[in-house]
């Protein structure tokens, strides 16, 4: 379990993380979403004691990260896939990290097998592709077989096979009762992996709910209607409380009435309908709708993405 309470980080006048409070429960995958520069990475680094908070605190299984003597056995983290030693082999990289936490050397071979890097283990990590670097970073996170996993953008640069592999790994880890906390900015990917979602925007938590709830509450559904009697139909539906928007091609986008009710109303007035489609809003749309105004605002402010992240 990860408990974050009132966590705040200021860089001069800029607030990167603003009074953030949430709990990441064990036994499920919690997605940590937000546009680039929204404070996800800074929050994760504060949880790991790399960045000192201006206010608030974060606990991992009830203790601050610094209190752990061999923390890799408690928390495994992937922060930045590009952080590989250019001149060292994957094997020696893992061996040095394992040694620092008194993890047996045999575990290095095990994690190399798990991430599928056994064949490349003796090659210089500097020559790895981004996908291989991600796998190496995940191998580091898994070294101590920790009950808490904290991964920042683990699917970046992975091919479709790799994406499926990491999804399975995360689901399996959660099923084993581990706490799995995954930052990302792709809602579509999160929808397939996460049970719970925390959305950060401009350093603040704007959503903290289950994926199911997020879809229900956030995703807009409407009905697309094509009819030669557009204006009359529009007036009729508006009179019944619907919100009607005319799309560029003349079709009507109707919100607030079920498609069956629209069909009945049109039939009652003898209005011909050529097409009637119920459109389900996607999670991606819901996510963009809540974060996009912020992203636009951010661009207008001239705040660089990822600054201080």
């Amino acid at each position: 379990m990860i408990e974050v309470r009132g966590l705040t980080k200021r860089y001069g006048a800029r607030v990167a993380v603003d009074d953030v409070t949430f709990t990441v429960e064990p036994g499920r995958v919690t997605g940590f979403l937000g546009p680039n520069g929204s404070g996800k990475s800074t929050t994760m680094r504060m949880i790991l004691g790399l960045v000192a908070p201006t206010a608030g605190h974060a606990l991992v299984d009830g203790r601050p990260h610094r209190a752990f003597d061999r923390p890799l056995r408690r928390v495994g983290a992937l922060l930045d896939a590009d952080a590989v030693p250019a001149g060292r082999s994957a094997y020696h990289h893992l061996a040095s990290i394992a040694a620092s936490n008194d993890i047996a050397r045999g575990r290095v071979d095990e994690v190399l097998d798990v991430v599928g890097l056994r064949a490349a283990a003796r090659r210089r990590a500097g020559g790895f592709s981004l996908g291989m670097r991600q796998r190496l970073g995940i191998a580091v996170a898994l070294l101590g077989d920790p009950p808490v996993l904290l991964l920042d953008e683990p699917v970046n640069g992975l091919d479709p096979d790799g994406v499926r592999w990491i999804r399975t790994l995360l689901r399996k880890s959660a099923a084993e009762g581990r706490t799995v906390f995954v930052a990302g900015h792709l809602m579509s990917e999160m929808a397939l992996t996460a049970d719970h979602v925390i959305v950060l925007s401009r350093g603040r938590v704007i959503v903290d709910t289950t994926i199911a709830e997020f879809v229900r509450g956030g995703a807009r559904g409407d009905v697309l209607v094509r009819s030669p009697y557009g204006p009359r139909l529009s007036a009729l539906l508006t009179a019944r409380g619907a919100t009607v928007t005319v799309e560029p091609d003349g079709a009507l986008a109707v919100e607030g009435l079920a498609y069956s009710r629209i069909g009945e109303l049109a039939a009652g007035e003898g209005l011909v309908i050529h097409e009637l489609v119920a459109r389900q809003g996607s999670l991606e749309e819901a996510y963009l709708r809540i974060t996009e105004p912020e992203a636009v605002h951010r661009a207008a402010d001239g705040v660089p993405d990822g600054a201080g992240a």
Binding site: R45, L48, G49, L50, H65, R66, F68, P71, L72, V75, A77, L79, D80, D82, A83, V84, P85, A86, I97, S100, N101, V140
Partner: peptide, 17 residues
């Protein structure tokens, strides 16, 4: 080199002291 590559974070995550 550890600061330059970002590996210092991996190192300090493994050994917070």
């Amino acid at each position: 080199s550890e600061y330059g590559s970002g590996l210092i974070r991996t190192t300090f995550t493994a050994v917070p002291r």
